[in-house]
Simulated assay, not measured.
Amino acid sequence: MFSSIKVKFLVLLTALFALAGCDDKKEAPAANKTSITVEHSQGKTDVPENPKKVVVFNTATLDIIDALNIPVTAVPQSDVHFPEFLSKYADKTYTNVGTLFEPNYEVLSSLQPDVIIAGGRANDVYKKLSDIAPTISLDIDPNNFVASLTERTEQLGTIFAKQAEAKKLIDDFNQKIEGLKAKTSNAGTALVIMVNGGKMSAYGPKSRFGFIFDVLGFKPAATFQEAGRHGNAVTSEFVLSVNPQWLFVLDRDNAIGNKEAQSAQQVLDNELIQKTDAWQQNHIVYLDSTSMYISGGIQTYSRLMDQISDVLQKTSAN
């Protein structure tokens, strides 16, 4: 009798192991589909498919992520002046992981994120971030802006299973470009300047803010050998000498929340600038500086196009 019970027990045990083995086989294929290889500005990285704990340091990428309604766990909040449409990320709902330049590694390690999205101002600390979690740098190339922006949006759509949403976002963006280019073809020459600490720097085609020339088709009032991220130092005399018909202005002090410096309007309100065609035709456009300087993703440039379209419509009606 004892032997009979023993045999039955062994048969039952074998059956249980067999069932457990079947369960393992069912789960195995799913385990093989848990990562995606992402090619980015720092190389190639395997990231989890549709990650849940997401840390974003690159504000241009955050701009796109927000447009795709992708949930975010943590962002840098210290000394960060978010544009209005991204202001919710300053809330305590999101974990603060330091500044755009200096991550809080202790908080990051305890958070155990599934993926860290770096790039932009956090590129210098990419190696340290990648030691904590899979890290990708989805920078946008200003020399090939639309194609690069499209690629980054598509990549985020693939990582977070938002392919359809990404396609619609890109289609709407390209449609807006085509609609605006029809209005800018005969708009005249333009100059993009940034005011910082009472001084001016200018940007031309293929620069950090070259979208106005490279994509929208405004003719540059001046060309520069090399702009760099900080532009080319210019004076009011220079602006008058190239005499742009349009002047697009960014206020860096306003963008970073510095209330002590002269505003861009104050700096430009002088006799030399007042002699330019841009001033006399009321063609000076003050851009959303926080959006352009801090973020710079698909929502930023969509809003920029809306602003320019409105200005062109108003001036053509006069």
Score class of each variant (00 low, 15 high):
252 R>S: 09
242 V>F: 13
166 A>Y: 04
67 A>P: 05
275 K>D: 02
313 Q>N: 14
153 T>C: 04
141 D>G: 02
268 L>D: 05
175 Q>S: 12
228 G>W: 03
281 Q>S: 14
133 A>F: 08
99 T>K: 06
202 A>R: 03
135 T>K: 11
148 S>T: 07
86 L>V: 03
261 A>W: 08
257 G>C: 13
20 A>Y: 06
163 Q>S: 10
41 S>N: 11
292 M>W: 13
261 A>Q: 14
257 G>F: 10
99 T>E: 01
98 G>C: 07
217 G>T: 05
63 D>A: 04
303 R>S: 11
134 P>F: 13
15 A>I: 15
161 A>D: 06
276 T>K: 04
143 N>W: 02
259 K>Y: 08
14 T>C: 10
184 T>E: 00
170 I>D: 01
282 N>G: 12
121 R>V: 05
247 L>K: 11
82 F>C: 01
280 Q>G: 09
32 N>L: 15
312 L>I: 08
170 I>R: 03
63 D>L: 04
150 T>N: 10
193 I>E: 05
7 V>F: 14
208 R>I: 08
140 I>F: 03
133 A>S: 11
285 V>L: 15
51 P>Y: 08
204 G>E: 12
205 P>W: 05
243 N>A: 13
108 L>S: 06
308 I>G: 02
195 V>G: 03
149 L>T: 10
297 G>E: 09
310 D>T: 10
269 D>E: 13
135 T>H: 06
270 N>R: 08
196 N>P: 01
43 G>K: 12
243 N>I: 07
249 V>G: 12
244 P>R: 00
80 V>Q: 01
147 A>W: 01
310 D>L: 15
178 E>D: 14
142 P>T: 14
311 V>Y: 12
128 K>I: 05
9 F>E: 06
212 I>H: 04
298 I>A: 01
165 E>D: 12
